[in-house]
Amino acid sequence: MAVTGAILVLFLLGHMAGNLKAFFGADAFNHYAEWLRTMGSPAVPYRVLLTVTEIVLVVAVVLHMWSAVSLARRAAQARPVKYAAKRKSQANGYATHTMRYGGVIILLFVIWHLLDMTFGAVNPKGFDAEPFDRLVAGFDPSRWWVTLFYVVAMIMVGLHLRHGLWSAFQTLGLAGGRSYGKLKATAALVSLVLVIGFLSVPVGVMIGVIK
């Protein structure tokens, strides 16, 4: 959970930073997309580093989900008889209780997102369009429901990381003593930065800052 989660967080940071290229216009964004494919050239052939990254990400996502399902199954087996009274959470961690269903929402979002922006299957411009055109068309104000879905999904990502970030340190035995305050504050800050960074682009298209 912790190791695969860490890989995915590093990816998200890179992805979010890359998205901000959209604010510098169509050329900057399209060149960035091209650069992802020509990274390391001429030493590394076209799209090799990107493909390797994609494979690592898919493996990380699958293992992350496998860990989550194993944990949920163990939890169900450890408590075959449920409590009659509604169990009130005593630890004040709203984010903690969104991890499982939030993870499912994020998975559904990732599938939609890939169909939308990578394969162009559900994008008005389709696969052959330039990345920037797909971006602008995808978040067109008339497709407000897509943007809304992105907003909900990004909030889920934020909550997921709010717990997941510090939890990973705990799982790997790196947290402890008096460091929880700082660790949890850092987790909250990183989650907030990611959510704002990710949401700035669809909202930017929506209000016409990116066109």
Binding site: M1, S70, L71, R74, A75, Q77, A78, R79, S89, Q90, A91, G93, T96, H97, M99, H163, W166, S167, Q170, T171
Partner: peptide
């Protein structure tokens, strides 16, 4: 023993 796995919810230390 069949106990579940820890997901760092913090409910334990709270009670």
């Amino acid at each position: 023993e069949g106990f579940g796995g820890c997901t760092n919810t913090g409910e334990c230390t709270a009670v």
